[in-house]
């Protein structure tokens, strides 16, 4: 009964696509850790991204094939991003940044396929990824610089009277980083998919009103097409932004004095 209700609602409800349904029930120590549609798409994301990177580079061609070029380009793209932002020492975090970029990019793009679940449209996923980044920054910064890492909150060359205020602002801005990092990605994916669904919903609802309705549905249809293109751009852009900000935050861990 529930399933059928879900299908009926799925027709126009823009929220339905974000619902998490359990595929294999799992409970560990009172926690519900069921394998859900979200888990399925995480696995799919990882499998697709991993398989693509693995098989496209399998021949190790000196002259790359098209697919190998794509893998190499993404690799060098992220490498340059990190090198530009955090310098040569930053390259120790390359696996992390590259994994984050590929995971978010593939998850976002996979979400563009109709009826597919968008892993990154859930705040907890993006927040966990953001915490991973900030956690890495804090732990590595503390390990490398000890208390010197706290210089991050005290910029150079400010009058002593202003120090408490500036430190307060810096601390707040530091603490808001994981929030802004995760909310940006989550909100973009969520809003994009809702908008897309709403406009697509207009098309079906309007076309129910005969010829005039079908004529009226042209505009939302055009919007849906345009938004789909935009969403592909956003899918890439958000992965890029996440990676860029990760690089910048990692730079703070490496050079807190700046």
């Amino acid at each position: 009964m529930n399933g059928r209700e879900g299908v009926k609602v799925a027709g126009t409800d823009p929220i339905h696509q974000f619902q998490i349904r359990s595929l294999v029930d799992l409970h560990v120590g009172g926690l519900d850790v069921s394998f859900t549609n979200s888990s399925l798409f995480m696995v799919a994301t990882v499998a697709i991204a991993g398989a693509f990177l693995y098989y496209s580079t399998a021949t190790r061609g000196l002259i790359p094939s098209r697919m190998q070029s794509v893998s190499e380009m993404s690799y060098e793209f992220v490498a340059n991003l990190l090198r530009d932002a955090a310098g040569k020492e930053g390259m120790r975090f390359f696996p992390l940044v590259f994994s984050l970029f590929m995971f978010i990019l593939v998850a976002n793009l996979l979400g563009m396929v109709p009826y597919f679940f968008t892993v990154t449209s859930h705040i907890i996923v993006t927040f966990a990824l953001a915490l991973l980044v900030i956690g890495t920054v804090v732990i590595y910064g503390m390990m490398k610089h000890g208390l010197g890492f706290l210089k991050l909150f005290v910029p150079h060359g400010i009058p002593a009277a202003l120090v408490p205020l500036v430190v307060l602002i810096e601390v707040i801005s530091f603490l808001s980083r994981p929030i802004s990092l995760s909310v940006r990605l989550f909100a973009n994916m969520l809003a994009g998919h809702i908008t897309l669904k709403v406009f697509a919903g207009f098309v079906t609802s309007l076309s129910a009103f005969g010829a005039i309705g079908v004529a009226g549905a042209i505009l939302p249809l055009a919007m849906t097409v345009a938004l789909t293109g935009l969403e592909f751009l956003v899918a890439f852009l958000q992965a890029y932004v996440f990676a860029v900000l990760t690089c910048m935050y990692l730079n703070d861990a490496l050079h807190p004095g700046h």
Partner: peptide, 17 residues
Amino acid sequence: TYPSQLLWLAITFGLFY
């Protein structure tokens, strides 16, 4: 849904990494 998402994200992303 958070525990499940966090666990599976940790598993999948960890393996991916």
